[in-house]
């Protein structure tokens, strides 16, 4: 609701002014190097990955430097899953591992060489259960853009607990919401315990080759129940990536993760459920 309000107000700036953007040269200082962790474990049975990299100067303009040779494990308190480095900086579990709702998962990292004065890092996350959606539907809005926009609507009885969600979309098994800023996240503050009755959980641009639909395409919506901390992490990251403006952006601030010893990033456990829809005849 608040995001919608902001986007709406922002849309009027362009009507009132001739606002334009142009590149600008800015000299930025460097800060010290820190470990970056991007890892998760879900209820899916698969090789779960933890990616270790290090921070770089802002205009580094190359892929993040991988951190190799670390010892990485995920534990649920009883069982310990070792991770092996498959490509530089990417550590994965065995293929048959899956997470169980209600358990607390801990990540432990021991680096070969200390970064930022620390070689031991850890994080933990509780895996919350998710309610499977009854269905999803697709609604086409030809007037929302030049080629039209598909709105993905979801139908589910939202449970009375306080929940946080992430929605991911795939077309014909290929996930196109593949970066953090494309994920739709939502808390249930305004609809807790209600039947969602078609609340939008994502949008597809018919003009894009990646997202545009042809009759018979399968759209998969994945819903993840995520923890409050991870929700806040994503919300903070998304607001920083959206950019700032004098109307409603507060001062930029660092994104709070859950890695110990000053590490950047997040390790999350989440549950996943999926629902499908077949693209109807174009424009229907």
């Amino acid at each position: 609701m608040k995001t919608k309000a902001y986007l709406f107000i922002f849309s009027f700036i362009s009507l009132i002014t001739v606002s334009c953007t142009e590149k600008i040269d800015i000299q930025l200082d460097d800060s010290y190097v820190r470990l970056v962790v991007d890892g998760s474990i879900s209820t899916d049975t698969m090789a779960h990955a933890v990616v270790l990299t290090s921070t770089s100067s802002y205009f580094y303009n190359q892929p993040a430097p991988p951190v190799s040779g670390a010892t990485v494990t995920i534990s649920d308190g009883i069982q310990v899953f070792p991770l092996t480095e498959t490509t530089p900086g990417t550590y994965t579990t065995a293929q048959e591992v899956f997470g169980i709702p209600g358990k607390v998962y801990s990540l432990n990292i021991k680096l070969a060489n200390a970064i930022g004065g620390h070689s031991d890092y850890s994080a933990s996350s509780t895996l919350n259960p998710v309610t499977a959606m009854d269905s999803i539907t697709l609604q086409f809005h030809p007037e929302w853009s030049e080629d039209g926009i598909w709105e993905v609507k979801c139908y589910v009885q939202e449970p009375p607990t306080v929940d946080f969600y992430r929605f991911l979309l795939s077309k014909n098994q290929t996930m196109f919401t593949d970066t953090l800023d494309e994920w739709i996240i939502s808390d249930d503050l305004f609809y807790n315990g209600n039947y969602t009755n078609g609340l939008p959980i994502g949008y597809l641009d018919q003009g894009s080759t990646e997202q545009g639909l042809r009759v018979g395409d399968t759209i998969t919506a994945e819903v993840n129940s995520i923890g409050k901390e991870y929700f806040n992490f994503l919300a903070e990251a998304q607001s920083e990536l959206f950019g700032s403006n004098p109307l409603f952006s507060g001062p930029p601030a660092n994104i709070k993760g859950n890695i110990s010893n000053g590490g950047i990033g997040f390790f999350t456990a989440y549950s996943a459920a999926r629902s499908y829809a077949i693209a109807p005849e174009f424009g229907k």
């Binding site: 800015i26 800060s31 921070t55 953090l180 930029p252 990033g265």
Partner: peptide, 20 residues
């Protein structure tokens, strides 16, 4: 006065800023 990034970290395929 403004706050600008002085570093970056890649998480979820996105470049996250680390601020001054």
């Amino acid at each position: 006065p403004v706050t600008f990034p002085t570093g970056r970290a890649i998480v979820g395929n996105a470049i996250l800023p680390i601020y001054s």
